[in-house]
Amino acid sequence: MSDETEKPEPGETPRDVGGFIRDLRRNARISLRQLAQQAGVSNPYLSQIERGLRKPSAEVLAQLAHALRVSTPAMYLKAGLLDTKDNPGVLAAIATDPDLTVAQKQSLTQIYETFRRENARSKEENTDVDPVS
């Protein structure tokens, strides 16, 4: 019973990310065994992650994100691996919105990331050219 009252270290949210992964898996209607196989991790390890007993590495989170068809940044954000100054507001809102399906979350995240890349590229191109005054 002590691990039910045990709190994660500051900045760590293993129970939160585990619940997030479990919810995504259930919404996708795939078994723990299927997800473990698709992500390349063992069943017991995935079970421990979902129950908040283990904190997955960034690599495992990326594998799970790919298998669950969600963006890796959304998974990192939920796990507390992205800093709040990295514009997580939009990604966090998408990732945690209970009214969106997994597919909708994935689409919105991809669209948002595409817009950001395009804007960054456009900004680079505009700074490379000297404006004529």
Score class of each variant (00 low, 15 high):
residue 17 V to M: 14
residue 17 V to N: 10
residue 18 G to P: 03
residue 18 G to A: 12
residue 19 G to D: 08
residue 20 F to W: 12
residue 21 I to W: 02
residue 22 R to E: 01
residue 22 R to D: 00
residue 22 R to T: 00
residue 23 D to M: 12
residue 24 L to V: 01
residue 25 R to P: 01
residue 25 R to E: 00
residue 26 R to E: 11
residue 27 N to Y: 04
residue 27 N to C: 07
residue 27 N to P: 05
residue 28 A to V: 07
residue 29 R to T: 02
residue 29 R to F: 03
residue 30 I to T: 09
residue 31 S to T: 11
residue 31 S to Q: 01
residue 32 L to I: 11
residue 32 L to R: 10
residue 33 R to H: 13
residue 35 L to H: 01
residue 36 A to F: 04
residue 36 A to T: 03
residue 38 Q to D: 03
residue 38 Q to K: 02
residue 38 Q to Y: 02
residue 39 A to G: 04
residue 41 V to F: 07
residue 43 N to C: 02
residue 44 P to L: 15
residue 45 Y to M: 05
residue 45 Y to S: 03
residue 47 S to W: 04
residue 49 I to W: 01
residue 49 I to T: 08
residue 50 E to V: 08
residue 51 R to V: 07
residue 52 G to E: 06
residue 53 L to M: 11
residue 54 R to W: 04
residue 54 R to K: 13
residue 54 R to V: 09
residue 55 K to A: 11
residue 56 P to E: 06
residue 56 P to F: 08
residue 57 S to R: 13
residue 57 S to M: 12
residue 57 S to G: 13
residue 59 E to H: 02
residue 59 E to L: 05
residue 60 V to D: 03
residue 60 V to G: 09
residue 61 L to D: 13
residue 61 L to Q: 12
residue 62 A to T: 14
residue 62 A to Q: 13
residue 62 A to R: 13
